[in-house]
Amino acid sequence: MKILVTGAAGQLSRLVSLALAEQGHEVLGLDLRPMRHRDFPGPFERVKRYDHRQVDEVFRSRAPDVLLHLGIRAGGFQAEARQRYTQNVLGTRHLLSLCRRNALDRVVVLGTYHVYGAHPNNPTFIPEDAPLRAVQNFPELLDAVELDHTVTTFLWQHKDEIPTVLLRPVNIMGPHLRNQVSTLLRGAVCPRLLGFNPMQQFLHESDLVRALVQVLEGSESAVYNLCGEGEVPWRRAIQIAGARELPLPHTIAYPAIRLLSRLNIAFPEHLMDFFRYPVIISDDAIRSRYPWRPEVSVVDTLRSLHDVPPDAPLGRSNVAS
């Protein structure tokens, strides 16, 4: 298969692409950012500021069979809301329409479990059909939720034409990845809210790579939650990761983080809710369809954060197949 991987300049796309290349697939990278990895196993196209015509041309000239959309959170949380919306929601919508026009065989999109929102009344084991409550408290998550809706609408409307899968993984951790939560856990001090210690789920990067490879080879249309081996409270996670706890009273923490995140020196405020209320999702659906099971325990996942310096180049042998 010829697989178009978006977000190709990122570490996760690189890991997945290496695993896919090892399976004998042809990989083609696409990103808004310049490519930094020398070992990306295929050609790479850079599209600055999501130019529709340029992307059309990539589809026309390269004729991919499969879209693996990993670049959905382009711009990060620091980017301006409107720009993020244009890139993520409208960009994804355009990509999906291109998949239809070019009659691709399969689309796999990586979403996030943040769309469920950290809500005090969340049941444990949130299924895929649960309401997406993230925007109730934090409108900043609108683009994540809209994107999720865009993909699910596409998924059901065109499920006979293009089998599409939307994955909603929990916090993805690993030696190579730098995201909001892994950066916090790698830091010298990690914030927690005084009196709150909600359960968290973590997924190791290699488990995610294996899940993506299996799902790419499937032929159904579905939405799947993805979580790791077990659950662990946030404080225990900080201890296992080897960071020092910074206890903050929530009355002070929320306004402080809001201010700091506006100045681009802290994580987004909505993450604070995830340190307050548990969001435990159920991955029964993917387990009943695929042989995939998480192989790295939650303790090892958190310990692996310090395994190798995240920027060190990684050989193929390190990638789980």
Binding site: T124, M199, G230, E231, P233, P278, V298, V299, D300
Partner: peptide, 9 residues
């Protein structure tokens, strides 16, 4: 789980 907690905590 391996960390000693069940999903509910």
């Amino acid at each position: 789980s391996s960390a000693g907690y069940d999903p509910w905590g």
